[in-house]
């Protein structure tokens, strides 16, 4: 009791909503999911504790393949988003000034005023066989006739990158804005060339922003459901789709919960690995976002 000074009490009260939020909306459901994932249906409405759901995952190559495929494509999407966002972030942070800068920032935000569904359907309209882009390609003679650009893995990547680019851009812009221009000039003055300055000065400085953006994009793509389902082709499997299917159309909550936990584990491990490899600290990266 003697430790509960008014100051401490205030602190607890201030933290209470955040803690409640965490507990009610994040921790409790996960505990529930975890418990469901470790059981098995043995009869109508009867369940017993079991590792069957996890065993199924490792024994069934289909699930395993989908898992790996989702991870690999998310990684590719993350790397491509980084490569595409970097020049844009550089332009906004360092080249553009005043109104132009505000305008460019607004332009990157603009697509997010529409819902993700609308944005994804937009791609559908652009890329479909009778859509704008295939027709245009045929018109200017790149292809003999309109080609179906939808339903390829590349289409999914385009959609994933498009819907997550902003989350790469913002931390990158933040990181690059804090880079003192004189550092670049100094390096140039000391004999550095563009590539070397990029490698030795700009990227190390932006590293926490790069890590933050990559973590966000990676998690977003890994957990994306809509884009792979709408833009994906006949063979496109996405792990979240598998989770949805297990929960909703197979009525197999146990399997779905196990999949959800595996996905959580995968994203945690990959983020941890990424930070480890690039020598970043999680706290630093998160401060950038």
């Amino acid at each position: 009791m003697n430790t509960l000074t008014p100051k401490r009490l205030t602190l607890y009260l201030l933290l209470a909503p955040a803690i409640l939020w965490l507990l009610l909306l994040i921790i409790l459901p996960h505990v529930g999911m975890g418990m469901i994932s470790f059981r098995e249906r043995i009869g109508p409405g009867e369940f017993a504790g079991s590792l069957k759901q996890y065993r199924t995952f490792f024994e069934e190559p289909l699930y395993w393949n989908t898992f790996v495929r989702t991870a690999v494509m998310s990684l590719i999407a993350t790397i491509m988003a980084l490569v595409m966002a970097f020049p844009v972030a550089w332009t906004i942070a360092k080249v553009a000034k005043g109104r132009l800068k505000a305008l460019m920032l607004a332009a990157t935000l603009l697509p997010f005023w529409a819902s993700e569904l609308v944005r994804t359907l937009g791609w559908l309209i652009l890329l479909r066989g009778s859509g704008v882009i295939p027709q245009f390609l045929a018109f200017i003679g790149v292809t003999d006739q309109p080609v179906e650009l939808l339903y390829h893995d590349a289409t999914i990547l385009v959609g994933l990158i498009y819907s997550s680019l902003l989350f790469m851009l913002v931390p990158l812009i933040n990181a690059l804005e804090t880079l003192d221009d004189s550092l670049i000039e100094a390096a140039y003055d000391l004999g550095g060339n563009r590539l070397n300055i990029l490698r030795k000065i700009i990227i190390p400085h932006a590293a926490p922003g790069i890590a933050a953006g990559s973590i966000m994009v990676f998690m977003l793509t890994l957990g994306n459901y809509l884009t792979p389902v709408v833009l994906g082709g006949k063979s496109s499997m996405w792990f979240t789709e598998q989770i949805y299917t297990q929960f909703i159309t197979r009525f197999n909550w146990e399997q779905g919960a196990a999949f959800a936990f595996l996905l959580l584990g995968l994203s945690s491990v990959l983020v941890w690995l990424g930070l480890k490899i690039t020598g970043q600290r999680f706290a630093d990266a998160m401060r950038r976002t």
């Binding site: 289909l62 393949n65 989908t66 006949k234 063979s235 496109s236 499997m237 598998q242 299917t245 297990q246 159309t249 197979r250 009525f251 197999n252």
Partner: peptide
């Protein structure tokens, strides 16, 4: 029965 259907449907989706 839906579990049987589900596995077959998954296999179709995953095949190349």
């Amino acid at each position: 029965l839906e579990e049987v259907d589900g596995k077959v449907l998954d296999k179709i989706k995953a095949s190349n």
